[in-house]
Design a protein around this nucleic acid. Structure first.
Lengths: 107, 107
DNA sequence: TGGCCATGTCTCGGCCTCCTATGCATTGGG
DNA sequence: CCCAATGCATAGGAGGCCGAGACATGGCCA
């Protein structure tokens, strides 16, 4: 599948994989890949700016997580993020219904 | 719904509405809007360059259709276009399965 | 012990694709 | 008589993801 097919749905993906609990960037990529059955391979150049933007919007909260000398940034959902995730799920339903009914008309 | 949400799926939409028979540009927009239940409103600035590109690719064939003094360009699928439509439908299934399983995990 | 790969975060430029705005022509209605 | 709807077309702009690369740590293996 074209890797950039996630365009417009990236926020929902990130919110969804963060729903069960906090993750850091690399783990987010792995979680998306795992939950999509290997189909979606996000790039670091894609998600880091997006995570920062989502934090600016108040959907995520981040903190540094020290693992020995190594540090990694741990992202977790805010309440606004959970609401945004619900909205993304609704929008996804409407989106697939709209495109799907054009692509495969019921008639 | 965000109007530019069709990004990446526009070709499939156009191929799909042309499947039953030839249409001209304005009618294509109306067909997409109708079949999507009013959710998808494409713009002329979006579809005309796309139709030209798809014709260059051999997916469509066009001819001038005279209605009195007015002329309009009638687009129809080629065999390659029908194959491309089948591919788009397969890709759509894989796409929705991938995003959907991340957004709403079975577990 | 030295090097390489995996892990991990981050930035910048580029490009694809769709949008907005605009122009132009014909036809019909108020 | 003018404006709206129909109809085609182009140009410029912008958003969002990608590719490439920089940089640092830690583990493995020769």
């Amino acid at each position: 599948m074209r890797a950039d097919a996630v365009r417009g749905h990236l926020d929902g993906l990130l919110l969804a994989v963060l729903e069960p609990g906090p993750l850091h960037g690399y783990a987010i990529i792995a979680a998306v890949q795992h939950r999509s059955g290997g189909a979606l391979e996000l790039r670091t150049g894609t998600i880091y700016p997006t995570l920062q933007r989502m934090e600016r919007l108040g959907l995520l909260r981040s903190s540094w997580d020290a693992v020995g000398e190594r540090r990694r940034r741990r992202y977790e959902l805010t309440d606004a993020g959970r609401r945004a995730l619900a909205d993304e799920r609704t929008a996804w339903q409407e989106f697939t219904a709209a495109i799907g009914s054009v692509l495969n008309p019921a008639t």
